[in-house]
């Protein structure tokens, strides 16, 4: 009798465990079940790193679709449908931290994400899926600022992704003077670290100037004659995303320069319509490039200074 009971118990354990093995973990429906209805979502995914068996932590080596979307058995058993079964669907209504957690489960080890917790994007409820699409290829550049796309000049998709939230920046990138982002030469991430940074405005350097010097090394100096606002913060005079004024300036020259410089000589002069070529008292400080006509080395100079002559001094950024 004991043998019979023991055999029945062993058989039951074997039967139940084998049944559980074939169905996968409790609550999971399995990828094949998902694809039964959502085959269209797999086409692009199947070519991505997420579906590479050689990548140890890839979803295909775990629970497949349910690695990111959560257990789907309830969803499948209910016959599917939007909002059915408590899946993580990465919709706008879902909490950003819940959506991001699905990604961070695996990508937490990424060195790109070490400052995610300190970054502004996390604070502002931006989730990974707001920027990254996994089930479809990146969309071709389209929309405002992309008229050159047919000619082969196309902004990166990145600029358009960032522009979804940063509308004011997107508008400035097409202003008269701008960095070549809409032309596809640089991207937002050339300067910013969207995954979080301990630096201001999530830039990729401790200060704005140190960031700008990476591409504009000729402005790095150090110069003998320094212009303090230039050395402290390029953004005092320049609007890096774009400006209606030339050279990305925050205000038109000469007014921008005059905001800091006023003496009894020309810096305090009212350069109005009358000081232009067509005015009654044209002034070289007003026409064309205005102050920059003469103060060409405004970013700094190593030219000598003649104490007996003020007109060709490096100290005034004239040479």
């Amino acid at each position: 009798m004991k043998r019979v009971l023991f055999s029945l118990l062993a058989f039951s354990i074997l039967f139940l465990s084998s049944h559980a093995w074939s169905a996968g973990p409790v609550g999971y429906a399995g990828t094949d079940t998902c694809l039964g209805c959502h085959q269209d979502r797999a086409t692009f995914m199947s070519k991505s790193p997420h579906w590479k068996k050689a990548v140890p932590g890839a979803p295909i080596n775990q629970e497949g679709c349910e690695s990111c979307h959560g257990p789907g058995a309830a969803h499948a058993e209910a016959g599917g449908g939007k909002g059915v079964g408590g899946l993580v669907t990465f919709s706008k209504k879902e909490r950003a931290d819940v959506k991001s957690a699905a990604c961070l489960n695996c990508h937490e080890h990424s060195t790109q994400l070490v400052n995610w917790d300190s970054g502004t994007h996390k604070t502002m409820d931006v989730s990974c899926s707001d920027c990254h699409t996994l089930h479809s290829p990146p969309k071709a550049p389209a929309g405002y600022g992309t008229t050159l796309a047919g000619l082969g000049y196309s902004p990166s998709r990145e600029y358009q992704v960032c522009g979804k939230c940063h509308l004011d920046v997107k508008a400035r990138l097409s202003r008269r003077s701008h960095h070549p982002i809409v032309e596809g030469r640089i991207t937002c991430s050339s300067c910013h670290q969207p995954h979080g940074s301990t630096y201001p405005a999530m830039i990729k350097a401790p200060s704005i100037n140190q960031l700008c010097y990476k591409c504009h090394a000729e402005k790095r100096g150090p110069f003998m004659w320094e212009h303090p606002p230039v050395d402290e913060n390029c953004a005092t005079c320049h609007a890096p995303h774009g400006s209606v004024h030339q050279w990305l300036l925050t205000e038109k020259v000469p007014n921008l320069c005059q905001a800091c410089h006023d003496t009894t000589t020309h810096p305090g002069t009212m350069y109005s319509k009358q000081s232009l070529f067509t005015g009654k008292a044209p002034a070289v400080q007003s026409v064309g490039r205005a102050c920059l006509n003469c103060h060409s080395n405004v970013h700094g100079s190593n030219a000598p200074a003649n104490p007996a002559n003020e007109f060709n001094r490096g100290s005034y950024f004239l040479r």
């Binding site: 020309h266 009654k280 008292a281 002034a283 070289v284």
Partner: peptide, 13 residues
Amino acid sequence: ASAGSAGSFTSRL
């Protein structure tokens, strides 16, 4: 480098 007078152009460049 001072302010101009009518019809003149201040400074040479």
